[in-house]
Design a binder for these strands. Sequence first.
RNA 1: GGUCCCUUCGUCUAACGGUUAGGACACCAGGUUUUCAUCCUGGUAACAGGGGUUCGACUCCCCUAGGGACUACCA
Length: 553
Amino acid sequence: MTNPVDLLKQKLFPEALATPEELAMKYPSRSVAEGALVTRIAPSPTGFVHLGSLYTSLISERLAHQSRGIFILRIEDTDKKREVAGMAELFAATLQHYHLTIDEGLGADGQESGNYGPYTQSARIQIYQSYVKALYEQGLAYPCFATPAELEALRSHQETIGERSGYYGRFAAWRTKSPEEALAAIEQGLKPVMRLKSPGNFHTKIIINDLLLGRREMPENDQDIVILKTDGLPTYHFAHAVDDHLMGTTHVIRGNEWFPSLPLHLQLFAVLGWQPPQYAHLAPIQKMDEGKKRKLSKRKDQEANMEYYQQAGYPAAAVIEYLLNLANSNFEDWRRANPTADNTSFELSWKKLANSNGPLFDLAKLNDISKELISRLDAPTVFSNTLEWAKKYNQAFHRLLVDNQEYIQKILDIERSGTPKPRKDIARWAEVENEIAYFFDDNFEVPSTVYQAALTELQGANQQQIIKDFLAVYNISDNPEMWFEKLKVVGKQHGFAATNQDYKADPAQYRGQVGSIAKVLRLLLTGRTQTPNLCLIMQVMGEDRIRRRLSLS
RNA sequence: GGUCCCUUCGUCUAACGGUUAGGACACCAGGUUUUCAUCCUGGUAACAGGGGUUCGACUCCCCUAGGGACUACCA
């Protein structure tokens, strides 16, 4: 006849579980080079990819790779109620989009790779159960049948008597129940959770070493936290200890919302008999909301969603460089000193990271970084990036790009190649459509109000004659200097000073200055008051289009 | 309530205990330019407050205030 202790164990755990010794054999410690970091990002697939997750991923990936270590993507899908299908794959694909290389775990192709898997927690249930069973056998874990209502009642009771809330010490009713009582609860059809029997004392302080915060003192954990939920899946805390031990994580880099649970995590490593990893807790990226700083929120802030940046058409590298700048403020000095280097050759420093508080998200800074970065690209690269963006987000524009590849590349090359200071007017691929719109005849028009305003600049001069005279001497192969000289000559014939200085010196002698003529030409040709160099625009537009637009007046 | 974390221009930040508190973005002004953008020059703008320690404090200590995190069978 089976005794209650064995019977309960049978009810609590499946028959064939590996022992901790077997698991230790299956997942041997890694042989990585001296000083190499093994880091991971461990998202919960409950929604879109958050800017903060990318930030943490970036730091983890860079620190791993610059030490010739390993970066792992692990999926923490233990909350089946909040899980959203496809989000794990989206995460992997997003890391790939930002050129963060996953060495192990879920890859962008949707497949897992690596010898320490599975890397999806729901596929690791038996591993967690093995360790829970071992803890149970050592008297370090116990089943708890308290219902949510009972826990709620406990909480309010603790509040009224002024005690810390939680399941601990004398409040942990199931901590001391006998196997018979547990068996009786199972008989009634109740499902237990497994709790840690915490050996901690709240009044004992422990020393914590965080790579960024430094040496801190905190109370020991005494909460009998849930380690296995009724559905058999582990809670974050337990899965963290088991997975990061088995996977050989050397450095856990994560948001500082986890900092308060560090005593618990260290305790878990201790009861499991393992060496904990090093920890680095990062301050979250924040946002100003009604005069107050707060964490970027998944629900409230569109700029928290990486899809926002992709849809807006920010280059992946611009977003990465913005985040690098938040991580290490000396990044921008490095960038100035190395204008063309790939940002992966920037060495991320722990020390600089430590000084970072929760920075406020700054779209203006991102735009600046993005403009600077795009200005350094050549026209074919701008074109191909825009094409890739449009394929996903703007079908009509994509068609235009495909049909006019050569023409558009020439447009994009205006004041770009061969210029020491290329224009900085594109921050996002989505802006290219507007940037090149006037080079096409569909929907081209000169707004009459703007046109009228330009006409007044001519001070009654004969616009048609001016254009006729200009076209008579214009040669499409003229360089900008020649082009402008010719415009000056025509201007002079019609009473316009060749330079602003000339005009200012003797205003009575002139109708105006040559810039006014350029302004009218620009308007007729582009419909705009602000464009790149007009001579270069005309060369790209071609003779036919020039004559057509100028004769419309 | 409890346990922690944080605090320098509007924003991101720099400053062995000795600096006119520096840079970048943004903003403003001037210049260059056929317009715009670029580019150049200049400018406005900060040590949360109060106590100490010290010849000397942004820097070290304490207190206060403000902000933030956690306090789930969510991560």
